[in-house]
Design a binder for these strands. Sequence first.
DNA 1: CACTTGACGTGGG
DNA 2: CCCCACGCCAAGT
Length: 100
Amino acid sequence: MNDEFKVAVYSAIGSVPEGFTASYGYIARLAGQPKHARAVGYLLKHLPKDSSLPWFRIVNSKREISFPFGTSSYQRQLEALQAEGISLDNGKIKKEFFVG
DNA sequence: CACTTGACGTGGG
DNA sequence: CCCCACGCCAAGT
């Protein structure tokens, strides 16, 4: 993967408005690489510790947090989302908070 | 090289 | 809605 793509992905993630979520695939599409949803996941996983990107606003296409339920990672993301008013319904982001 | 892994997505049944 | 096979692709081993 090239820097061009990384930058586009970071930019796309930064463009997701507060109070909303977007899918990995949607970010990949915005970055001009529709088939790179997984690469988006890779980049998020390896985000620099100091990054201020809203990583928690990215969920999978089923509108679920992409961490196994019950893990601390899952919990961290859930809390970050709820902190800005995004609520889930049976593990799924309510559609009114989801774009893409 | 050739496998394997993983914060993914989609179409079909 | 659930489950599954398959497609995809960067990194790691």
